[in-house]
């Protein structure tokens, strides 16, 4: 199987609150520590990566987080503006039409421009070479070896990935059609682009992950590199059952913190078992690598925890 880092683009997708940004950050850091130049593209304008690294905001122009690791914050309005100014050739024209507070949302809604331009911006970023050359056929080393896309939550994320094909269906000819086809071909390219699904070890997110994988494969023709199950409860050590029984009996008698500690461990064990069942379920139903990230104890997350998580990705080659 191809290594995770052999992709040009990895799209990190999952429902809200499962830890997509942290996973995207860990993948980016894994690439950087493996000697590649990585770029994390945030699609929600939240600047989570900069916050993790305690750096100033990177903005739409992007900026560094660490050695060989950059981030960029793609806002839909920024992407639409950049694309239209380029397509319409005149900024004044863009300002006239799209700065209108009624026209912009209307055009966005009817044409799906904001989703299209957001994913189109990722293609732009993929086109950049270190030499400054830019385009699908430019030559020389890439400015970034890997682009990790921290996608919007599942529903919206899928709409974004669907946008190029949708635009092709309604335009059928013309520059917008051509451009959409380039984007679609890139995200459907087996050599260049894969999706990493993120979930929590809970029933509903796991079920949604299975549904999303089906949609990606069957409707969108975008390959799934694997699934990261985030926030797995900790695993027990290899105690012998006899010792564990002994400890339980002992603490049942003493009570207090000792008893509470054992009860807590029992509860964590049950959570762990339930989580493991769900991981097995994913393994059976999806023929892709399933990787576990441990539950973290520090908030907010900083570079140290990210490094800890990114080291787990070494298993995924």
């Amino acid at each position: 199987m191809r290594s995770l880092l052999d992709n040009r683009i990895l799209i990190v997708l999952g429902k809200g609150g499962v830890g997509k940004s942290v996973v995207a950050g860990a993948i980016g850091l894994h690439a950087a520590t493996s000697g590649r130049k990585a770029l994390i593209a945030e699609m929600n304008g939240q600047e989570t990566q900069a916050a993790i690294w305690s750096r100033p905001h990177v903005g739409y122009e992007g900026g560094p987080l660490s050695d060989r690791l950059d981030a960029v914050s793609i806002t839909p309005s920024g992407a639409v503006e950049e694309y239209l100014v380029r397509a319409l050739k005149f900024r004044a024209l863009y300002d006239l039409v799209f700065r209108n507070r009624y026209i912009e949302p209307l055009m966005n809604g009817i044409l799906g421009l904001s989703d299209l331009c957001s994913i189109g911006k990722v293609m732009d970023l993929e086109w950049h070479r270190t030499s400054g050359a830019f385009g699908p056929d430019a030559e020389g080393p890439y400015r970034h070896d890997l682009i990790v896309v921290d996608a919007p939550a599942t529903g919206h994320g899928l709409a974004m990935l669907r946008a190029p094909q949708a635009m092709m269906d309604i335009t059928r000819v013309g520059p917008l059609f051509q451009n959409s086809r380039l984007i679609r071909d890139l995200i459907c390219s087996e050599d260049k682009c894969s999706v990493v699904l993120v979930t929590l070890p809970e029933e509903l997110p796991v079920m949604e992950t299975l549904e999303t994988a089906t949609v990606l494969r069957e409707q969108l023709n975008i390959q799934v590199a694997g699934v990261i199950v985030n926030a797995m409860p900790p695993e027990d050590g290899d105690w012998s059952p006899a010792l564990w029984d002994e400890l339980q009996q002992l603490t049942a008698a003493t009570g207090g913190h000792a008893r509470a500690a054992v009860d807590t461990t029992l509860r964590v064990q049950r959570r762990r078992e339930r989580a493991e069942h769900l991981v097995e379920d994913l393994q059976q139903k999806l023929a892709v690598p399933i990787l576990e990230f441990p539950e973290l104890n520090d908030h907010p997350i900083g570079p140290q925890s990210l490094l800890q998580l990114s080291s787990r990705l070494k298993a995924w080659t």
Binding site: L243, T251, G256, H257, A258, A261, V262, T265, V268
Partner: peptide, 25 residues
Amino acid sequence: ALPKRIDDLEWNAMVDEVWTTYQHE
């Protein structure tokens, strides 16, 4: 809170781990 045992490494490791879990939770 939890008794350790001289020369019983497995027991002591178990006790430490249970305690860490408790602290985290």
